[in-house]
Design a protein around this nucleic acid. Structure first.
Lengths: 219, 219
DNA sequence: TTGACATTCAAACGTTCGTTTTATACATAT
DNA sequence: ATATGTATAAAACGAACGTTTGAATGTCAA
């Protein structure tokens, strides 16, 4: 084997193009023909390498989405370690930034969040995999991180919901950017992303602190 | 024409069933045959009444989604008028409640939010219609309502983003309930809905107040 | 009864879908 | 040189898709 390009890269090209197309149009919205055309390989290649279309979809999550999710998480941990400040403010700011600007290109991030949003709206086998291997561990890590920084009596569920509320906004402004720009009346450029990031951080921190206060001072 | 049942109700039954199925599976995920089967009418009925599948989809938004959105908004206005309290706290609480519990049944609300989420993820002609006739007017109404209650210097965009942040969580916990329950590890029953509603309200209010207090964004 | 109109129905249209089949090209190991 | 395994190619499979057709209904006015 060895040697020049376009050889055994068909499998990789298929995964690359499939992820983009699945993110843009959804599983049912893309045909195998469209994917193989984009990847410059034969129609039968999907079945040759992955057995069927559904397996290709799952493999996209295994070999593309999950590693990227881990990179985002790692970027979050690194930016936390970088400074001594471990306040709630700092943690959430780093969290929002890691997911909204993070270590990814604009195209990658858009693709990443769209796929996630689609799985949430219409879960498949893939979501079970992500929930188990990516999301639940990270939520646990996150709640463990936050717990010592807030008043004691708070319920675990509140904590979980808080973390999910943050991701709600991240996902919303990520996957719904077409609608967001249509409503804001301005383009989704780098500046807007930065402002969104700061806004989400502020909003989340405010929400968390209010939750803390409510828990203790009644309401 | 005769006033019997099941007569010219085919059109209405088609709209009812189509909305549910479109919400559950998306435009491409449902076949005309599936819709007509659910509505107990002939396959050709879709083309007879609506010309084609896409027109049926748009008509679902015109004759089902939009009136329901107006009912939700009206419920919000009524609950505001009911009491003299016009504080920021009260407004947002009413807002969250109107969208999370509001005047709809559980099934209706689920259907409603799922359709919206799908349009945000993959906008069609329908979203332009909703943005113009429903969303933009309501956001304007909302920001006009909130503006006098917060410090002056605040930017219009911040206000818009705040409103959208609230809807982000509403949509997230609405359309992603399968994923939510999978992460929380508990069922999405009435009690959870109630807690979610209160949580989103608290979270949103906290976020807004923080925005007011601190104009600057870190990072 | 007749004619016109609105609605339903079964059947078929042409197209596209995911998948399978068969054949071919080419590298490497024996 | 032959056998082997990998990869690509074109063509076809049956099934399902959205849509169209034309006949069969039922209703109501004339």
């Amino acid at each position: 084997m060895a040697e020049n390009e376009t050889q055994a890269d068909s499998r990789e090209r298929l995964l690359d193009e499939a992820e983009i197309l699945f993110a843009q149009k959804g599983f049912e919205g893309v045909s195998v023909r469209e994917i193989t055309r984009a990847a410059h390989c034969n129609l039968a290649a999907v079945n040759y390498y992955f057995g069927n279309k559904e397996n290709l979809y799952l493999e996209v999550f295994r070999s593309r989405w999950m590693p990227r999710a881990r990179r985002i998480q790692e970027s979050f941990r690194q930016s936390l370690k970088g400074e001594g400040d471990q306040s709630l403010n700092h943690i959430i700011q780093c969290l929002a930034l890691a997911f909204l600007k993070g270590p990814l290109s604009e195209a990658e991030r858009k693709c990443h969040h769209q796929l996630m949003a689609r799985e949430m709206a219409q879960p498949t086998e893939a979501l079970e995999m992500l929930a188990e291997q990516i999301m639940r561990p990270f939520f646990r890590e996150l709640t463990d991180m936050i717990r010592p920084l807030i008043p004691e009596g708070i319920h675990e569920e509140e904590l979980m919901l808080s973390a999910m509320g943050i991701f709600a906004m991240i996902l919303y402004f990520g996957f719904g950017r077409v609608a967001v720009t249509r409503l804001l009346g301005c383009e989704y450029d780098d500046a807007l992303t930065k402002r969104l990031s700061g806004y989400i951080a502020d909003f989340s921190i405010g929400g968390l602190q209010r939750l803390n206060g409510e828990m203790h001072h009644g309401g």
